[in-house]
Design a protein around this nucleic acid. Sequence first.
DNA 1: TAGGCCATCTGGTCCT
DNA 2: AGGACCAGATGGCCTA
Length: 188
Amino acid sequence: MDLALSDNMDLALSDTDTSSGFSARSDDENSRSPCATSPVMKKRRGRADGGPPVKRNRRVKANDRERNRMHSLNDALEILREVLPACPEETKMTKIETLRFAHNYIWALSETLRNADLEAERSFHRAEAPINPGSSSEAWSCSSSSSSSSSSSSSSSPVYCASSPGSPENYFQPQDAMFLRAFVPPVY
DNA sequence: TAGGCCATCTGGTCCT
DNA sequence: AGGACCAGATGGCCTA
């Protein structure tokens, strides 16, 4: 279909690319993308002549918008990474890892809140009608973990919550590197 | 070297 | 008509 691919590259690289409004990104991004550091954009496809000038101009503008759109998407992803629990700076989570981790993290936080509410409710009832005066301190001490026998078996750690059965972390795949990064101290 | 991840380009589609 | 969004294609870099 697109037969003139490689031929087009050299041709297309020479003119409109560098002037297409390409805006330099942050150092962080440039360091990863040689395409971005170089003023010369590769991977050009399509007609060798770029098509009619009007069409070509529209394409260049559309490319520029698309680039900016993806950049803003990446910026949002970066902000999300910063909000998530500590990850070593050198080991940046991939996009899919970030999304899965965020999903899991939100779920774990909401579970924590839910357990806290349940516990508050229980302690309120206990205060109203103490049943087992002998072991009251025990009942307090095992607060969240004791309640785990029934439903979520969740400890106070959202880590454990995250891996409990029946929870939405079906999206979460332990084989992901983020599983290790998030919950296990990295080994250097 | 293969595979994963990424940035970019591109054309199609939908929306305003 | 033009912009936003999307998915496919492509090639570069990095790591096991």
